[in-house]
Design a protein around this nucleic acid. Structure first.
Lengths: 316, 316
DNA sequence: CTGAAAGCGCTAACAA
DNA sequence: TTGTTAGCGCTTTCAG
C-alpha cells in the first residue's frame, strides 16, 4: 500500500484526511514500518558499523558514549563489533558488510587491504579512528600523538628532569609508537637522551605495575616517566609510591595519556595529555555523512590536537 | 538465482561442481549475500538490540565486551542504543523495533509497558539486564542486590562496626535501592541501626566526593560506609583520607560494589561486592536464544549471586 | 493526491 | 541436484 508509505515518508504529498486514516489504523494495529525492507529499495540502511578492539581501556566507554549519541541524533544506528580477542578483523568486516552498513569506523589493529578494497568497491565510507594505518584508501581521524608525546617531554624538561623513561602500550599499536616517537624527538632535540623505554602487553593497570617494577629497580632508573595510557600510569604511580617509597612528584614525575575520568581523583591527580574525544567522534561522523551523500573521490586525514592537563604528578 | 542461495546456505544440497562455479564467480565479483534481504524471507535478522543507560560506569564496558563477544560467537550482531541523556527510552525502542531485532536487552531506567507490549505482540524476547522492573511481561537477569547488600553489612558487623552509612546511586535505580535495602535489613536484624543514608545523582566519582564530605562532617558520622558503586567508593576513600585525615581501615571501613578493574589498584585496594557479569551476560543470551527458537509463554527471572571480594578497606 | 504495478536481493516451495 | 516461480515489506514510477 503506497498510501501508508507516503504517510511514513517525511515530505511526501498526502492529504490530511488520508494521513489521519492511516495513522489511526497504524496506532490501532501497532504498525511500524520495517526499515530493513525499506532499505532494499532506498539503498540506505542508516546503519554504521563500529569495529572496536579496546574493551579494557575505560576511555573507550566514553568514545562509545559519544558515538552512539551523536549517531542517534543524526538518525543513524550503531552496529557494534568486538575484535579484542581474536585476530579476525577480516571476518568481522565481512559480517558488517553483509549488513550493508552506510558507513564503517574501525578502531583496531591492522586494517587490511581487504576492508579498504571492499569499502571502495561498495562506496562505503570508511574511517580509521584513533589509528594511523601506514597507507590505504581510507579516511583517518586520530589524535596528534606525536605532538602529544612532545608536549609530555616538554613539560618534563621544563620541570628540570634529565633522565627519562617511556612506557608504551602494545608494540603493535601505532598510537603508542607515535607517542613514544614524539617524546623521544623532543628530548633529543633538547640535547638530552631517552634513558629507558619499555612496552606493555596492553594498556592496563597490571601492565603498568610490571613495567614500573622493572624500570624503577634498574640501573639507569629515570626520574621522569611518560606512559602511553593513564591506566598504565596509575600502575606506575602505585608501584613507585607503595613499593619503592618514592614520593611523586618530588622524587619522580609521571605523565599519562587520555585523561580518563579517574585521572582527576585525588589519589592519582595525574598530569596527562588529553585527546579531544568528542571532537574526534564528531569529525568522524561528519566525514562519514559527507561521503555518504557524495563521494568526491578523496580521503581525509585529520590529526587532532591534544592538550596537556596540568595536575599534580609533575614537579614545579 | 537459487543456486547461489544454496551455496551460501549451510547444509543445502548443491553439487561440488556447482559450488565451485558459484564460489569462483562470487570471489571474482566480490559478491556477498545481503543478509537484510535474506531476513525479509527468513524472518530472522540475527540482530540483538542493547539499550544502555550507563556510559559513565566502567563496569559497563566490561558488560559490553562480554555481550558483543558472546553474541558474535553465536552468530548474532549487536545493535547498540544509548539512552543516557534523554528520557526517551520509548523512542529508542521504537527505533530498535523497526529494525526487527531478534531479541532485545534493556539496561536502563523505567521499562515502559509500551516496550513489553510491543515485544509480546511481535514475539521478540526481551530481557531486563541488571534492572528489576516492578512488574511486567519480560525476563529479568539481575545480580541479587539485596543479598549483596546483606553481605556488605555482615562483613562490617563482623568487623565490629556499630555505626553505618549507606551511599546509594540515583534514587530511581532499582539496583541501588535493593542494595541499600539488603544492607539495612541485615543491620536491623542484628539489632543495630543504619545511621546515615544518602543518594548521589549518579554512580560517579564526584558524587562520592560530595556525599562523603556531607557524611563525614555530620554529627552522627558513621565509621563504616557501604557504597552502591566502586567509583563512588573511590570518591569516599579519597575524601576520607586526603580531606578528613581518616585512616582506612583503622578509622573507617568502606565497602564498594561491582569490583571494577581499578578496585584492585593498591591506592584503593577496595573490599567490594562483585557481580558475576560474565555469567549474567551468558544467562541473558541463553534466554534470548531459547525464546527465539520457541516461545513457551513464560518469563524467566534469574537472580545471580554476588561474592564478597576481600581486600584492604575493611578492618580486621 | 491516490491507486496499480514493478522490483529491491533474497529464500522457499515446487517441478523437472 | 537444479531451475522456475512466487513473495517477504517496502518504495517508486507512472497513470488516473
Amino acid at each position: 500500500m503506497s498510501a501508508v508509505s507516503r504517510v511514513f515518508t517525511p515530505g511526501a504529498s498526502v492529504s490530511a484526511r488520508m494521513r489521519a486514516r492511516v495513522s489511526a489504523a497504524a496506532d490501532k494495529l501497532g504498525y511500524m514500518p520495517n526499515v530493513l525492507a525499506r532499505s532494499l529499495m532506498t539503498q540506505r540502511t542508516h546503519l554504521v558499523g563500529i569495529i572496536l578492539a579496546n574493551f579494557n581501556n575505560p576511555i573507550y566507554l566514553t568514545v562509545l558514549d559519544h558515538f552512539t549519541r551523536t549517531l542517534q541524533q543524526r538518525g543513524l544506528r550503531t552496529l557494534l563489533l568486538n575484535v579484542s580477542n581474536e585476530n579476525d578483523l577480516e571476518a568481522m568486516s565481512r559480517l558488517v558488510l553483509q549488513y550493508s552498513v552506510d558507513g564503517l569506523v574501525v578502531s583496531a589493529g591492522a586494517i587490511s587491504p581487504f576492508i579498504t578494497e571492499q569499502c571502495v568497491k561498495r562506496a562505503i565510507p570508511l574511517v580509521a579512528f584513533a589509528r594511523r594505518p601506514r597507507r590505504g584508501q581510507l579516511n583517518v581521524v586520530c589524535a596528534d600523538n606525536v605532538a602529544g608525546g612532545r608536549m609530555a617531554a616538554r613539560r618534563l624538561i621544563d620541570a628540570g628532569h634529565r633522565t627519562f623513561g617511556f612506557l608504551g602500550g602494545p608494540a603493535s599499536a601505532s598510537t603508542s609508537e607515535e607517542r613514544g616517537e614524539g617524546f623521544r624527538a623532543e628530548i633529543e632535540e633538547a640535547g638530552l637522551t631517552l634513558n629507558t623505554s619499555a612496552h606493555a602487553n596492553d594498556y592496563g593497570y597490571e601492565a603498568g605495575v610490571h613495567a614500573a617494577r622493572q624500570m624503577l629497580s634498574s640501573a639507569g632508573c629515570p626520574d621522569a616517566i611518560f606512559c602511553a595510557s593513564d591506566i598504565t600510569a596509575f600502575g606506575v604511580l602505585d608501584v613507585a609510591r607503595h613499593e619503592f617509597g618514592r614520593s611523586v612528584p618530588d622524587d619522580l614525575s609521571v605523565v599519562g595519556f587520555d585523561d580518563v575520568n579517574l585521572a582527576a581523583a585525588s589519589s592519582y591527580n595525574l598530569t596527562t595529555i588529553s585527546q579531544p574525544v568528542e571532537a574526534m567522534v564528531t569529525e568522524t561522523i561528519d566525514i562519514l555523512e559527507g561521503q555518504m551523500e557524495t563521494w568526491t573521490g578523496a580521503w581525509d586525514t585529520r590529526l587532532m590536537a591534544c592538550t596537556c592537563i596540568e595536575r599534580g604528578t609533575v614537579r614545579q
